[in-house]
């Protein structure tokens, strides 16, 4: 039996999803859907500055996103998941992804490589909820109530050797259900990576559900990473492998488009991509454009990780 003792900074269940979304979620979605048809347009406006709450060092407000939770309808129907197609409208197609059974391989510089089923892993992990802002490199953002566990717990469970300096995660690649894999010149499978100090930072999270339900397939069922201070493409979906390695791994987008996307990919409004600015982001569901903040507003927890590094474009793309 797993006894879960709540630590002081964890949110109690009731503080997680705002009541009107949780209790009246279906209704809220209907109202939202209707408003998108006729009047949704009118509400959109360009807003000025947003200040995120600094977060108290203990207690329930620790990771308060400072913005309303994005309607579930948007988060589950507007998805980048290139394995299923190069556009956002892939949620129907993604339902074909078989997620049961699901096995995860933990290997590389660890005491003992293992293969574990998703269900068995979940029995060993302290499941909790975190509401995070999520900023896509395409200049839109959402606020999502994730369920899952801290990535540092997975690292602890994996028992890495001291030689392990980075973690590489690999997404499922199943050509039977993923038409995107038929594009032969993309470096499939999707791979992402983190530097070990990033992976054990308390913000780094493993997502296994959202909005108090199991993870929808289009959002990366059954297991994904959630790295809120980096651009969304770092938060790889539907993971089948965690490798502990010595050297900085090559990642999917870094290989695909090295002028646009790098390994570090920390959010910073000051460093535009070669084609578009990162200064602002469209807050989906809020109907406004807001200024983007360095580290996506999570500097208090992560800025110190990079204090010894040069703060140039390299660190922010």
């Amino acid at each position: 039996m797993t006894v879960h003792r709540r630590r002081e900074w964890e949110l109690p269940e009731k503080a997680v999803t705002s009541c009107h979304l949780l209790v009246h979620r279906r209704k809220a979605m209907t109202v939202f859907g209707a408003s998108m048809l006729g009047f949704g347009v009118i509400n959109e406006a360009v807003a000025d500055k947003v200040t995120y709450p600094p977060g108290d060092l203990s207690g329930t407000g620790r990771f308060d996103p400072g913005r309303p939770i994005t309607p579930e309808q948007i988060v589950t129907t507007y998805n980048n998941f290139y394995e299923f197609g190069l556009h956002k409208n892939i949620w129907r197609r993604a339902q074909k992804l078989p997620t049961e059974p699901w096995t995860i391989r933990i290997e590389g510089e660890v005491e003992r490589p293992i293969t574990i089923s998703f269900d068995d892993l979940m029995k060993k992990m302290p499941v909790q909820t975190r509401i995070y802002r999520h900023r896509c490199v395409e200049a839109w953002s959402i606020v999502v109530p994730w369920r899952g566990f801290p990535m540092r717990d997975l690292v602890k469970f994996a028992r890495p050797l001291s030689a392990a300096k980075y973690i590489r995660v690999t997404s499922m690649s199943d050509p039977k259900v993923m038409p995107g894999l038929s594009i032969p010149y993309f470096p499939w499978p999707y791979r992402e990576g983190l530097w070990m100090p990033e992976a054990v930072n308390e913000l780094a999270f493993i997502g296994t559900g959202m909005y108090d339900e199991a993870m929808p397939k289009q959002d990366g069922a059954p297991i994904r990473i959630v790295i809120p201070w980096k651009y969304g493409f770092k938060s790889a979906k539907s993971l089948v492998k965690f490798e502990f390695i010595r050297h900085q791994p090559e990642t999917f987008w870094e290989q695909t488009s090295p002028n646009f996307y790098g390994f570090w990919a920390n959010v910073n409004p000051k460093y535009p991509t070669p084609r578009w600015s990162q200064a602002y982001e469209r807050a989906l569901g809020e109907g406004r454009v807001i200024p983007t903040q360095i580290w996506n507003g999570y500097g208090r927890w992560v800025a110190s990780l990079y204090s010894g590094m040069k703060h140039d474009r390299h660190l922010f793309m």
């Binding site: 038929s182 032969p184 010149y185 290989q255 695909t256 488009s257 090295p258």
Partner: peptide, 17 residues
Amino acid sequence: SGLNPRLVLDANFSFSR
């Protein structure tokens, strides 16, 4: 892009897509 243009050309002779 950082992709191998040879692979992009080769894709014209494959029928997966």
